[in-house]
Design a protein around this nucleic acid. Structure first.
Lengths: 144, 144
DNA sequence: TCCAAACATTTGTATATACAAATGAAAATG
DNA sequence: CATTTTCATTTGTATATACAAATGTTTGGA
């Protein structure tokens, strides 16, 4: 292993941010979100499985800043894909009918994306990597 | 496993982009790059181990767009951390003395960052994850 | 030898995302 | 109950990053 690679495997920031750029490009090319970028689909997916989720909880599950969540929801609301229900300090988010349809389209196109990358990386490798990233995010989110 | 998690582990885009945000935040807080964001340190690291690298090669190794590389190098050159050597179509990049110093400072602070996250994730898990992300990026970069 | 095609870099512009400060609402405490 | 504290969201602003078009350079035919 070269010294360069030694440094790389000791810096998860380097390897993770590069990988994120690669997989984002693939997602932009293969996920069907109409005119929505993949990150909006991520939010829609989370809302789908957590109806009436608060904005704060969304921030945690997506690891985004509160200000980012405001802007994302603004856009999704304008497109009538989600509803905001303000109650005191909190805001609750849920999908509209139209939002459910976008989710279903995304869900179908996800198969295609999975096929594309697991063809290159291997199915087991891909599932394992994704699971590890998920676990790791939860731990970092909680303990840092 | 919940249905939400089933979707997550089938979508590397979701898990990788969230993880990248988490680890980026940690990197911003712990890596010592003076006033440079972590992504600039990544570029400096690659140049350190590949003196006189072309811009195109940098783009491949970092998985960034050519326009992004131009802007990064503009900034690093303005701070006298790298040199541009134009030759025909290509541009060759190398570190200045000052750039080497920035690398050395980064290198020292990397130990701290590694300690922070491997404390939460485990040393073996962290090294393994980083290695897998590195391999996966190389494959996606080559075959997609 | 000249032109067309290929290629690397740069510039114009748009967007996802962040942080810090501002706002608005609830809860706690005297 | 009145006021301070705490908390969730929003707004102002900055930056990393991308794509598409423009520019500049080389190379391979005709």
């Amino acid at each position: 292993m070269t010294e360069e690679e030694q440094v790389l495997i000791h810096c998860l920031y380097f390897t993770a941010s590069r990988f994120a750029r690669n997989i984002t490009k693939l997602a932009e090319n293969t996920l069907d979100g109409g005119d929505l970028a993949p990150s909006y689909l991520y939010m829609i997916m989370i809302v789908k499985f957590n109806p009436d989720i608060t904005q704060k909880e969304l921030c945690t599950k997506l690891s985004i800043a509160p200000s980012t969540s405001t802007r994302f929801i603004d856009k999704l609301e304008k497109q009538k894909l989600v509803n905001r229900k303000a109650d005191g300090k909190q805001t609750f988010i849920s999908l509209t009918e139209e939002g459910e349809k976008v989710y279903d389209r995304f869900r179908a196109s996800l198969k295609e994306m999975f096929a594309r990358y697991s063809d290159v990386l291997g199915v087991d490798f891909s599932l394992d990597l994704s699971k590890k990233l998920h676990e790791a995010s939860n731990k970092l989110e909680k303990e840092l």
